[in-house]
Design a protein around this nucleic acid. Structure first.
Lengths: 115, 115
DNA sequence: CGACTCGTACGATAGGCATCGTAGTATGGC
DNA sequence: GCCATACTACGATGCCTATCGTACGAGTCG
C-alpha cells in the first residue's frame, strides 16, 4: 500500500473549481451549520462529528455535515470509525480571498452583540 | 408640508439592531437576489424595481425584493408609483465591517471565473 | 467471533420557498 | 373623473429541506 489508506470509504467532495458562492451562503445561512463552522475555525484543526454538542439527533447532524461538505466548506475524511472534519480554508481563501474571515468575523460580532 | 412626503405607504424595515447574519446569507444565497444586490452595488444609488431585467415575473420580483428588505440588505421607499431600492451599506458596514465588500468581491470573482 | 462505537441510509413528516397567474390598490397625468 | 403605470396580495403548485426514528454497515477492542 503506498498511500496511508485512511479508510476504504471515501466521501465525494467538490473540486476547488466546482465550488460556488451561492451554496456556501446557503450552507452558512443555517444557524446549526454556522455554529459548526465557527467551532471548526476556533479549533483550527480537525474534529469528529460527535465532538460537536448540537441540539439535534445524529441523523440531522450527518445531514448538516454533508451539506457543508457538498458546498465545499469543509473536508471530511474517515479515520477508523471516526470522521474527521476540517475547514477548507486553503481552497476558500484561494477562490474568495477574505470571504471566510469576513463571514467568521461577522458571526463573532453578532455573537458578542447578542450576548 | 415639512417633510418631502415620499408617500403615504411605508414599508417595514428591520431596525439596524435587528439585522441578523443568517437571514442576510439566506437572502444572498439565491442567484436572483445576489444579482439584484450586485447591480445595486454597481450603480451605487437607487433603482426602481422595474429597472432590473430579471427572467421572472413581476410577482416573483416583488417577492425577492421583500426578502432582501426584510433581511436588512436593501432599503425601499416609494416615490410616486415607483419604489426606489438602495443598499443599506451604511448599516451593514456598521454591523459587519467588511462583510458586504467581501461578499460582493466574491461574487465578482466568481462571475469572472465562470465567464 | 461478539459486543460496542461511530456514523449512514432510508422513509416519513412538516414546513418553507421560488415561481406563476390573476385580481386589486396607490399614484400621477389628462 | 378616468386611465395608465407600478407594484402588491392572494392562492396554487411543486420542490427543497430540517427534523426525527429505526435499521444498518464499518471499524475497533476484548
Amino acid at each position: 500500500m503506498t498511500s496511508p489508506a485512511v479508510s476504504s470509504r471515501d466521501l465525494p467532495h467538490p473540486a476547488r473549481d466546482e465550488i460556488r458562492l451561492e451554496p456556501i451562503l446557503h450552507a452558512l445561512s443555517d444557524p446549526m451549520r454556522l455554529a459548526i463552522v465557527r467551532e471548526l475555525a476556533t479549533v483550527c484543526g480537525e474534529l469528529t462529528c460527535s465532538q460537536f454538542e448540537l441540539p439535534v439527533t445524529k441523523s440531522t447532524t450527518t445531514h448538516h455535515f454533508r451539506v457543508l461538505r457538498e458546498a465545499g466548506v469543509i473536508r471530511q475524511v474517515y479515520r477508523g470509525t471516526a470522521k474527521m472534519n476540517g475547514l477548507r480554508k486553503d481552497d476558500l481563501d484561494d477562490l474568495f480571498p477574505g470571504l471566510l474571515d469576513a463571514l467568521l468575523g461577522a458571526a463573532d460580532r453578532q455573537a458578542v452583540r447578542l450576548g
